[in-house]
Amino acid sequence: NDEAKKEAEKLWKNNKSEDEIKERLERAGISPDEAEQWLQELR
């Protein structure tokens, strides 16, 4: 999970869309709710 979150953070810094980041997190096995929460922390 931490690995996926690091990846999400990297994508965020590269200005990827939130949808793309969420999709990537969900593919890594993170629930949509958790993915949404993680994005809010990044904002």
Rank of each mutant, 00 (worst) to 15 (best):
N1H: 14
N1G: 10
N1V: 14
N1C: 15
N1Y: 14
N1Q: 14
N1W: 15
N1L: 13
N1M: 14
N1I: 14
D2Q: 11
D2Y: 11
D2G: 09
D2A: 12
D2R: 11
D2S: 11
D2H: 12
D2K: 11
D2C: 15
D2F: 12
E3M: 11
E3T: 10
E3V: 11
E3A: 12
E3G: 08
E3C: 15
E3W: 14
E3Q: 10
A4M: 12
A4K: 06
A4Y: 09
A4H: 05
A4G: 06
A4C: 15
A4N: 04
A4R: 07
K5E: 01
K5N: 01
K5V: 01
K5T: 02
K5G: 00
K5A: 01
K5S: 04
K5Q: 03
K6C: 15
K6E: 07
K6T: 07
K6H: 04
K6Q: 07
K6W: 06
K6M: 09
K6L: 08
K6S: 06
K6R: 13
K6F: 05
K6A: 11
E7G: 04
E7T: 07
E7V: 09
A8I: 08
A8G: 02
A8W: 05
A8H: 00
A8C: 15
A8R: 02
A8F: 08
A8Q: 00
A8K: 00
A8E: 01
A8V: 06
A8P: 01
E9D: 04
E9F: 05
E9G: 01
E9V: 04
E9T: 05
E9S: 03
K10P: 14
K10R: 13
K10C: 15
K10F: 12
K10N: 13
K10G: 05
K10E: 14
L11R: 03
L11H: 08
L11A: 05
L11F: 04
L11T: 00
L11M: 15
L11I: 05
L11K: 04
W12E: 14
W12A: 14
W12D: 14
W12S: 14
W12K: 13
W12Y: 13
W12L: 14
W12M: 13
W12G: 14
W12Q: 14
K13M: 11
K13A: 13
K13G: 13
K13L: 13
K13Y: 13
K13T: 09
K13R: 12
K13W: 13
K13P: 15
K13H: 12
N14Q: 15
N14R: 01
N14T: 12
N14M: 11
N14S: 13
N14A: 13
N14K: 08
N14G: 11
N15H: 11
N15I: 03
N15A: 08
N15F: 04
N15T: 04
N15P: 01
N15L: 06
N15M: 07
N15Y: 03
N15V: 01
N15R: 05
K16L: 14
K16D: 09
K16Y: 15
K16E: 12
K16T: 14
K16S: 12
K16R: 07
K16G: 13
S17E: 04
S17D: 06
S17C: 13
S17H: 04
S17L: 04
S17R: 01
S17Q: 02
S17M: 04
S17Y: 03
S17P: 09
S17F: 04
E18C: 15
E18G: 03
E18N: 05
E18Q: 05
E18D: 09
E18T: 07
E18Y: 12
E18M: 12
E18L: 11
E18W: 14
E18S: 06
E18K: 04
E18A: 11
E18F: 11
E18I: 12
D19K: 13
D19Y: 08
D19N: 10
D19H: 10
D19Q: 13
D19F: 10
D19V: 10
D19T: 11
D19E: 14
D19C: 15
E20N: 03
E20D: 05
E20A: 04
E20W: 03
E20F: 11
E20R: 02
E20T: 03
E20Y: 11
I21C: 03
I21P: 01
I21H: 01
I21L: 02
I21W: 07
I21N: 01
I21G: 00
I21T: 02
I21R: 04
K22F: 07
K22L: 12
K22S: 00
K22E: 02
K22P: 00
K22D: 00
K22H: 03
K22I: 10
K22N: 01
K22R: 12
E23W: 00
E23G: 07
E23Y: 00
E23T: 09
E23D: 09
E23I: 08
E23L: 08
E23P: 00
E23A: 11
E23V: 09
E23K: 08
E23H: 06
E23N: 07
R24A: 14
R24K: 12
R24P: 02
R24L: 15
R24Y: 15
R24S: 12
R24N: 08
R24T: 13
L25R: 01
L25T: 01
L25A: 03
L25Q: 00
L25K: 00
L25S: 00
L25W: 02
L25P: 00
L25Y: 00
L25C: 03
E26K: 11
E26R: 13
E26I: 14
E26Y: 13
E26H: 13
E26W: 05
E26D: 05
E26M: 14
E26G: 10
E26V: 14
E26C: 15
E26N: 08
R27G: 05
R27S: 10
R27M: 11
R27D: 07
R27C: 14
R27E: 07
R27P: 03
R27V: 07
R27F: 07
R27W: 06
R27K: 10
A28L: 15
A28F: 14
A28Q: 08
A28G: 06
A28M: 15
A28C: 14
A28V: 08
A28E: 05
A28W: 15
A28K: 06
G29K: 02
G29N: 05
G29E: 04
G29R: 00
G29D: 04
G29T: 02
G29A: 01
G29I: 01
G29M: 03
G29F: 01
G29S: 02
G29H: 02
I30W: 07
I30T: 03
I30Q: 01
I30F: 11
I30L: 09
I30G: 02
I30M: 12
I30H: 02
I30R: 01
S31I: 02
S31V: 03
S31M: 08
S31E: 05
S31R: 08
S31Q: 07
S31G: 08
S31A: 09
P32I: 06
P32K: 12
P32E: 07
P32N: 10
P32D: 08
P32W: 10
P32S: 11
P32Q: 09
P32R: 12
P32T: 09
D33R: 10
D33V: 11
D33K: 11
D33Q: 13
D33I: 10
D33C: 14
D33N: 10
D33Y: 08
D33T: 11
E34S: 03
E34I: 15
E34R: 10
E34D: 08
E34C: 13
E34W: 05
E34A: 07
E34N: 03
E34M: 14
E34K: 09
E34L: 15
A35S: 06
A35V: 14
A35C: 04
A35T: 06
A35N: 02
A35M: 08
A35I: 15
A35E: 00
E36C: 05
E36D: 09
E36L: 08
E36I: 04
E36N: 06
E36F: 05
E36Y: 04
E36R: 02
E36Q: 04
E36M: 05
E36G: 02
Q37Y: 04
Q37H: 06
Q37T: 05
Q37K: 13
Q37P: 00
Q37V: 05
Q37G: 06
Q37N: 07
Q37C: 11
Q37L: 10
Q37E: 12
Q37F: 05
W38E: 02
W38F: 12
W38V: 06
W38K: 02
W38I: 14
W38G: 02
W38L: 09
W38T: 04
W38Q: 00
L39D: 02
L39I: 12
L39K: 00
L39N: 00
L39M: 07
L39G: 00
Q40M: 07
Q40Y: 01
Q40V: 08
Q40T: 09
Q40P: 01
Q40E: 13
Q40G: 05
Q40A: 12
Q40L: 06
E41G: 04
E41M: 08
E41R: 10
E41I: 06
E41S: 07
E41H: 11
E41N: 09
E41A: 09
E41Y: 08
L42I: 08
L42D: 00
L42N: 01
L42T: 04
L42H: 03
L42Q: 03
L42F: 13
R43Y: 05
R43N: 04
R43E: 06
R43P: 03
R43I: 12
R43F: 09
R43K: 13
R43H: 06
